[in-house]
């Protein structure tokens, strides 16, 4: 059972998850993931040939409404939650 998450896969998953795990944490969570994946693979027993995947449970689709402004721009309120801001903008570390 379970050796699907080798170092390369783990690197990729960590990148997708935008996390940077410590080495001890990484090994622990890798083991737990393997164990959980072993379990959820029970689904392979199910014959799902010809079954359409069910994403949304209700039959309502494509709900549209007019794009009407109901509030102000809320700029100050929004910026109040920013870890760092300057001159009415979000501030981030250098990007390149």
């Amino acid at each position: 059972m379970g050796k699907r998450i080798d170092d390369a896969v783990m690197d990729n998953v960590e990148l997708l998850a935008k996390l940077s795990l410590g080495s001890e944490e990484r090994e622990k969570v890798r083991g737990e993931m393997e164990q959980i994946l072993d379990y959820v693979e029970k689904l392979n027993e199910l014959d799902t040939d010809g079954v359409d995947p069910l994403v949304h449970i209700l039959d309502e689709v494509n709900v549209f409404r007019e794009d009407v402004e109901t509030n102000g721009d809320g700029r100050e309120d929004a910026l109040a939650n920013a870890p760092k801001s300057k001159d009415g903008q979000y501030m981030v570390p250098k990007t390149f």
């Binding site: 990729n12 996390l19 969570v29």
Partner: peptide, 16 residues
């Protein structure tokens, strides 16, 4: 926290 990270990692894996 660790439970949240575990679920994000698992989710990233099954969608990858």
């Amino acid at each position: 926290g660790s439970e949240v990270k575990r679920r994000i990692l698992l989710g990233s894996f099954v969608l990858s």
